[in-house]
């Protein structure tokens, strides 16, 4: 024996039939004209967004790569510049030093040569002078001697005087 069921919990066959019809209509029409295009559109949009995000990520990574490359290059360039500058400076210093050295030695050489020349000249002049002075002295002495020797008494007088002087001393 079944319970006397409250009409509230007794399914009404008419409404069940209509519900089924309504649901079928809805499933068919919405499935064909709404869910399919909407799901497709959403999937496409999501794919598009995902693609865009992936592309952006890729671009970002590339940018980062580029930037790091740039930085690396820059650092390298900077380093190179520094080394070049340093080298240049070294070269410059070396050149200056070399030049200085060279100039110094050159100058020293020139000075030495000059001094030598001067010395030589001086020596030549001195020798020349000596010769001339000797000649002059000889000539003068010759002339003096010639005049002196021409006066015989006086000579003898002088010799006498000298011998006297020697006794005094």
């Amino acid at each position: 024996m079944l319970l006397e069921i409250n009409p509230l919990v007794l399914p009404d066959p008419g409404l069940m039939i209509w519900s089924a019809i309504a649901f079928f209509i809805l499933l068919f029409i919405l499935g064909k004209f709404a869910w399919k295009p909407i799901m497709k559109a959403i999937a496409e949009r999501e794919k598009g967004i995902n693609d865009a995000i992936a592309t952006a990520e890729k671009v970002k990574a590339e940018m980062a790569q580029l930037q790091s490359d740039n930085e690396k290059l820059l650092a390298q360039a900077r380093e190179e510049r520094a080394t070049i500058l340093k080298e240049a400076k070294d070269i410059k210093d070396k050149m200056i030093n070399d030049a200085k050295e060279q100039a110094k030695t050159e100058a020293a050489k020139i000075m030495a040569e000059t001094q030598q020349a001067i010395e030589n000249q001086k020596m030549a002049a001195v020798i020349d002078l000596k010769n001339q002075v000797g000649n002059l002295v000889v000539e003068v002495a010759e002339k003096v001697l010639r005049r002196e020797l021409a006066n015989k008494p006086e000579q003898e007088n002088y010799i006498k005087q000298l011998t006297d002087e020697i006794k005094l001393n």
């Binding site: 029409i29 919405l30 709404a34 559109a41 496409e44």
Partner: peptide
């Protein structure tokens, strides 16, 4: 429901997915 969702589906068609 048919009016709402078919119009929404048409909006996707018309406006594109992007």
């Amino acid at each position: 429901l048919i009016i709402i969702f078919v119009s929404v589906a048409n909006a996707y068609k018309k406006r594109g997915v992007t």
